[in-house]
């Protein structure tokens, strides 16, 4: 690929890098792994760039590649569910428009989402990105009905965990 395409790709990625960061934050638990995953996403996006037609939004195309990379990347580092999640969530998300109590509640929800399994995280991520169930189902390769059912179960799971259950 020539230099011009490379420059265009880098520009697009720089503008849309939040998509990748948000996925990395969900799937990784320390800075080093975050950067590794981000880099792998960049490589995979670049590899798949010739398939990007330009008639869809770059972000729509990118989150699919990024999610596939996050789910299939071999990660050696173990998560430390009790402490690291919470600290990272607190450090990296801030909601200035909320009072402290609400801020803390949102951080707890986020920390709980990060403890879900890989597929549930993908489901939640797409939901948070305000994708329709048709799109969620299509991205995950499952039926729309099953995507809805699973999403409801995940919501219940999050609620239970926040209330101290499993």
């Amino acid at each position: 690929m020539n230099k011009k395409i490379e420059v265009a790709f880098v520009n697009l990625l720089e503008e849309n890098q939040n998509i990748l960061h948000k996925i990395c934050r969900l799937y990784t638990f320390d800075e080093e792994t975050h950067k590794d995953m981000f880099q792998e996403m960049v490589i995979q996006l670049w590899k798949s760039y010739p398939t990007f037609k330009g008639n869809s939004k770059f972000s729509t195309w990118a989150y699919r590649v990024a999610l596939n990379t996050a789910i299939s990347l071999f990660r050696t580092k173990k998560r430390n569910v009790e402490t690291v999640d919470w600290d990272v969530a607190v450090n990296y998300i801030s909601y200035p428009e909320y009072d402290n109590r609400e801020d803390e509640q949102l951080n707890r929800i986020y920390a709980t989402v990060r403890q879900l399994n890989d597929i549930e995280k993908a489901l939640v991520y797409l939901y948070l990105e305000d994708k329709s169930y048709v799109e969620i189902a299509e991205t995950l390769g499952i039926s729309e009905g099953n995507a809805r059912v699973r999403m409801n179960r995940v919501k219940t799971k999050i609620k239970n965990r926040l209330n101290g259950g499993r």
Binding site: V10, E14, Q17, H21, Y92, I93, Y95, L128, K159
Partner: peptide, 25 residues
């Protein structure tokens, strides 16, 4: 529900450490 609360603020979340074009390259 909890997830919808997070959803209302989700689009406003921004990563503090953004990579530069040189780093991405």
């Amino acid at each position: 529900d909890e997830l919808d609360k997070l959803k209302t603020t989700w689009s406003g979340i921004s990563e503090p450490k953004q990579f530069s074009k040189q780093e991405i390259n």
